[in-house]
Simulated assay, not measured.
Amino acid sequence: MSIEQMIWLSAGTCGLGPFRSDLAAEYWRWEEDPSSLIGLGRPVPESLPSRTQGLQQQLAGRNIRFTVYDLTAPENPVPAGTTTLQPDTYARTAEYILVIAPEARGKGLATPATRLTLDFGFHVANLRSVWLKVLAPNKAAVHVYEQAGFQHVGAMRQAGYWHGAVCDELLMDALASEFTGPSVLLNRPEP
Rank of each mutant, 00 (worst) to 15 (best):
N187P: 05
L170I: 10
P77Q: 09
A25P: 03
V78W: 04
A73H: 02
Q53R: 14
P74G: 01
P87C: 06
A11N: 06
P189Q: 14
P43V: 05
R20C: 03
L135T: 12
G12Y: 07
A24I: 04
A141E: 05
S36M: 02
S35F: 05
L186G: 12
S36W: 01
H163Y: 06
S129F: 00
R128Q: 15
L171K: 07
S35R: 10
R92K: 14
I97A: 13
N187V: 11
G181D: 05
S47G: 11
Q56Y: 07
M1Y: 01
P18H: 00
V68S: 05
P182Q: 15
I97T: 12
M1K: 02
K133Y: 07
G154S: 02
S2K: 08
E169Q: 15
G17V: 05
W28L: 01
P102C: 10
Y96Q: 12
P45S: 07
L37D: 00
A140L: 10
W8H: 05
I64G: 05
I38V: 14
A176W: 08
T89F: 13
E32F: 06
A140R: 12
L109K: 10
D173Q: 15
T93K: 09
R105N: 09
K133P: 00
G106C: 07
W8G: 02
L170Y: 04
T89H: 14
R115G: 08
P18K: 02
A73P: 00
L186E: 15
Y27V: 04
A155L: 03
G15C: 10
A159L: 10
K133H: 11
I64S: 06
A60S: 13
R128P: 03
V153T: 14
P137S: 15
L9H: 03
A104S: 09
G108F: 01
G61K: 07
I97H: 09
L98M: 10
Q86L: 13
P102R: 11
V99N: 07
V99K: 02
D119Y: 07
S2E: 09
G149N: 05
